[in-house]
Design a protein around this nucleic acid. Sequence first.
DNA 1: ATAAGGATGACCT
DNA 2: GGTCATCCTTATA
Length: 231
Amino acid sequence: MRKKSSKRFANMPNPLGLESAEDGLLGGRVDWRQLARSFFDAPPEQVARALLGKILVRRNGGERLAGRIVETEAYLGEHDPAAHAASGRTARNAVLYGPPGHAYVYSIYGLHYCINVSCLPEGIPGCVLLRALEPLEGMDAMRRNRGFSASAAIRQLASGPGKLCQAFGITRAADNDLDLTGADSSLGFVEDGFQGGDIRVTPRIGIRKATDLPLRFFLAGHACVSAAGRK
DNA sequence: ATAAGGATGACCT
DNA sequence: GGTCATCCTTATA
């Protein structure tokens, strides 16, 4: 059974040549070429852009979850009023000052988790927030983690930063400060050669400060971009 | 539109 | 020490 892709999404390159599972999705296949620490040893705005199209992978024993990143935000250093590093180093944000490529997980609104990747060399804070991804592997486990039925649409599984963490079972207790570039880490990034199509840039979502800075990046027209700001 | 709900940091004593 | 406003959100109506 073939599904046609949506008109909006028709021009999105799909180098793998695979059929999308649902309208507005890319589909794809997960290869193992893990991103190295040097990838993250760079300014957040550069890493945020470069992470679009890369794949987040979680290994849970025999189970593997994977999804293509479609939406990110850059958070800068102490000069960025919206960043957690804005008022200097604290116990909570210490990971931001550590080596690049580590997970900074925090809880928000007492209800959800958000995951960031630390950037820049040790001692210099900065990170990229993972806001949304397109599930590629382990959709059934993601549905379970999200409390959805087996027929729930792929696009609802990880189309927001809190949803993404819930789908992947990411928590502060288990995953904060995890080295995402480690060969044995349960969480990491891989790349499969996909070069993101049309990248859109807007101000960041859900913040009160520095609302004018264009630091949010997403794949234009992708169905899994968070509902808070598809435009 | 709004409720849910907890950790954190700022700012006091 | 204590209090209080804030917060990189989501699922409901």
